[in-house]
């Protein structure tokens, strides 16, 4: 475990908690894409099935359980408890355009043609694009609440830190996972435009709004 990996995990955790707290404290999920959150719940579910087959460490198991539990809690808050505040009219990204190609690709390009491995690969590919419904929603409404931008920042930072972690592991451990690295690069690139807006606007105290 290197510092980039650890801060990446903590950044991921921070993002998840920020989103949960935002919804809970404001009693509203306005501006949040339920579709992205459903995709993240699917990502964690398909990736962490190895909880049943192998034990790595207490840290590993607890983080996986926390991620899964939080993502289901978020979906519950959006689609059940605070459903009245869910902005479904603006959450119109067609998720089948992501899930179907990603499903096909995970059958074609994987480390090993076994059910658990294909599901793991599916989760890696799906995670890289799961934020698109959220970014699409922001581009449609032209704005995002500041707390939502903090969520997105930590979520993007997490994969960027994982990229540095992989460079580190390549040099010091000879580890290299092409599938994770390519998907991680794609995932990080998707946040670049947002990172730019975050630094130039949100960090200077302005609200994130896009030109009409």
């Amino acid at each position: 475990m290197n510092i980039f990996r650890l801060t990446g995990d903590l950044s991921h955790l921070a993002a998840i908690i920020i989103l949960l707290l935002k919804i809970w404290k404001t009693r509203s999920c306005a501006g949040i894409s339920g579709k992205s959150q459903l995709l993240f719940a699917l990502v964690f579910t398909t990736r962490y099935l190895d909880l049943f087959t192998s034990f790595i460490s207490l840290y590993n198991t607890s983080m996986k359980l926390i991620y899964v539990a939080c993502s289901y809690a978020t979906v519950y808050l959006i689609y059940m408890k605070f459903k009245a505040t869910y902005d479904g009219n603006h959450d119109t990204f067609r998720v089948e355009f992501l899930v179907v190609p990603v499903g096909g690709l995970s059958f074609l390009v994987n480390h090993d043609f076994s059910p658990l491995e294909i599901l793991w690969t599916f989760s890696i590919y799906l995670e890289s694009v799961a934020i698109l419904p959220q970014l699409f929603m922001i581009s449609k409404t032209g704005e995002a609440e500041t707390i939502t931008t903090h969520y997105l920042f930590f979520l993007g930072l997490y994969r960027a830190l994982y990229l540095i972690n992989w460079i580190w592991r390549y040099y010091f451990e000879g580890f290299f996972d092409l599938i994770a690295v390519v998907a991680g690069v794609v995932q990080t690139i998707l946040y670049c435009d947002f990172f730019y807006l975050y630094v130039t606007k949100v960090l200077k105290g302005k609200k994130l709004s896009l030109p009409a």
């Binding site: 475990m1 990996r5 995990d9 991921h12 190895d50 192998s54 790595i56 460490s57 590993n60 983080m63 996986k64 991620y67 480390h111 090993d112 793991w120 994982y162 592991r169 000879g174 580890f175 290299f176 996972d177 092409l178 599938i179 994770a180």
Partner: peptide, 10 residues
């Protein structure tokens, strides 16, 4: 080198 995935990562 092209090794399999890191099992310990999240």
């Amino acid at each position: 080198c092209h090794r399999k995935k890191a099992k310990d990562e999240l």
